[in-house]
Design a protein around this nucleic acid. Structure first.
Lengths: 328, 328
DNA sequence: AAATCGAAAGACAACGTTGTCCCGCAGTAG
DNA sequence: CTACTGCGGGACAACGTTGTCTTTCGATTT
């Protein structure tokens, strides 16, 4: 009744050869007589046989699923999406498939998905760590892990991250060079190494005279409220530095609402689509998520292939793109 | 030397019970004495045992990998990314994992990835068809498929798509209501059902007096060039209708370049981030990619669960969002 | 012509798990 | 005290494939 998927045995029976011969043909071994190869090929074709990768994986020596996992904040966020795409491209070039998951910065989900992927025998994992405890990861799953975007707490492993400190410092120095003396800071969750590093860059550029700062913002409306409050407070900053694209767009809306978009300068960390079409166009410190994804994938494949050197911390350079909002 | 992953056998040995008892405990069967359960649990803990899902899958009766595939144009495109995310959320709720792939509208890749997923025994597939031949799909892979965004050629199956004709017609009628009589059309690849349907809506709204039209655009720069050419031609349109967000942003750039953004109206099909912050804000016919993803996932899970009704064509409504650019 | 060799192809076990069956033992009834 | 019942738990086969070993048979060597 149920049209079962054909197995190698079915192919062997219709081709009139042994099961093992079918295996040999399917795996491209050369020790099979041409006429048998033809018969097997025909049988495969007629039955529309496809090998059962799970079963072959079970018996094979190398024990590889040719699948990796990618766990990011939110696959629909432009930064994560670009990174994901770059990983996928590298993987495709090697015939490797990609399982994805969005963590929404939830350590529970991070752990659950990481172990779920491990149970599926993914060959490796690319992970944007949430900041939660990762003690379980390498020891327990046994698969290589490469961290992206953020440096994890308490674990060592390859990580691929932006030059956050120098990028942020460069942005703030750019504002200083335009004559700004009071520069406000609007930053993301300090649990994450990115926010901490970018804040360090901000402080480094300003020395002992930092401006007002708000931390732990993570959605545009909170950022918008914080920016409005900061600009309405006494002695308001003449320029803003934002550390994340969602905070940046919140700040853009705030400036627009106050009608100050041409009188208060703004530089955001992380580029975003259409930043150049806004009025004024938004100056940013652009990250290179594609390169981060490519680099992370390459590093992971090296680990999968057995490279066993010490943990690497790979920094991907950022680029200041002056567009107008930072040059007021 | 190599620290092998522990198997059930290892657990059984350290717990001092039989292999099958471990299997029972791991699978939560109730017919095991409490003290044995405790011993097994302890052994699992101490060895950090994780079951090998591939092996269990092989033997199990239901034969489900609890994994689905999602094949979209480009996971880094906002529309695809939002859809992907929605599918992922639905899947998570059911403990199902998601394999992804970007097709870049390449039918060869489409076929290759679909069969690769089938060999991995994914339980089902959500696919934004490229427009190529899909004869291989259902017959050969045997897994349920739900199409999203576009209606495939030559195959029947559940599909979840936007109300393209009425959405496009509504947009064009909106422009007509503002007094526009000459409305230019900038459209995507006619190989895809979306472009054809949106063009049909455009024609329906304009009756026998359509404006100038350019088809088969698919990147912003080509769209920008086409828009500039159209506006410089004799008897130029006073309004533009674009059928894709990448074409829309191209048109925005074109209008900006010509300094006509306040004199030529524009409505784009498909919303995009920050459309409301541009100057003028861009009026769009918004699709609901999240709802499309949720709906597609739900439909796929129904098929996976054995629903065997006739192919369904589910239309997700679009919404006209007047923001300014269409009201000039 | 007998012995040797090599290549091709089949038989069989194994991968890690679950389904099926059967056994042993405690508790109960006769 | 024996026979029966019920159920916890173990032995064994099976899932679909590949690794290893063995067999077969024709060709080559002496």
């Amino acid at each position: 009744m149920t049209p079962q998927r054909p197995t190698m045995n079915d192919v062997a029976r219709t081709a009139g050869v042994s099961l093992k011969t079918v295996s040999r043909v399917v795996n491209g071994e050369t020790t099979v007589a041409p006429d048998l190869v033809a018969k097997v090929r025909a049988a495969v074709e007629s039955l529309d046989y496809h090998p059962h990768l799970g079963a072959s994986m079970l018996r094979r020596n190398d024990r590889r699923t040719r699948t990796i996992g990618v766990l990011l904040d939110d696959v629909s966020h432009p930064f994560s999406a670009a990174l994901h795409r770059a990983v996928e491209d590298q993987a495709r070039a090697r015939g490797i498939h990609v399982l994805t998951g969005s963590l929404d910065q939830d350590p529970v989900r991070e752990q659950a998905l990481a172990t779920a992927f491990a149970e599926r025998q993914t060959d490796g994992l690319i992970l944007a760590p949430t900041g939660g405890d990762l003690g379980h990861l390498e020891a327990h799953t046994g698969m290589p892990v490469v961290f992206v975007d953020r440096i994890p707490a308490g674990v060592t492993g390859d990580s691929v991250v932006s030059t956050n400190v120098s990028g942020a410092a460069g942005a703030v120095r750019h504002l200083v060079a335009q004559g700004h003396r009071r520069i406000g800071y609007l930053g993301g969750r300090r649990l994450l190494s990115t926010a901490r590093e970018r804040h360090r860059g901000y402080l480094r550029a300003l020395g002992s005279h930092p401006g007002p700062a708000v931390h732990d913002l993570h959605d545009p409306t909170a950022a918008e409220r914080a920016a409005i409050a900061m600009l309405r407070a006494p002695d308001p900053p003449t320029a803003l530095f934002t550390t994340q694209s969602m905070v940046t767009t919140g700040a853009v809306r705030a400036l627009r609402r106050l009608g100050r978009e041409r009188s208060v300068a703004l530089i955001g960390f992380d580029d975003f689509p259409l930043a150049d079409l806004l009025d004024p166009p938004v100056t940013v410190v652009a990250q290179d998520p594609s390169r981060m994804g490519r680099t992370a994938a390459t590093a992971l494949f090296e680990r999968i292939d057995g490279y066993d050197g010490p943990p690497r911390e790979i920094r991907i350079p950022t680029t200041l793109i002056p567009r107008g909002s930072g040059e007021l």
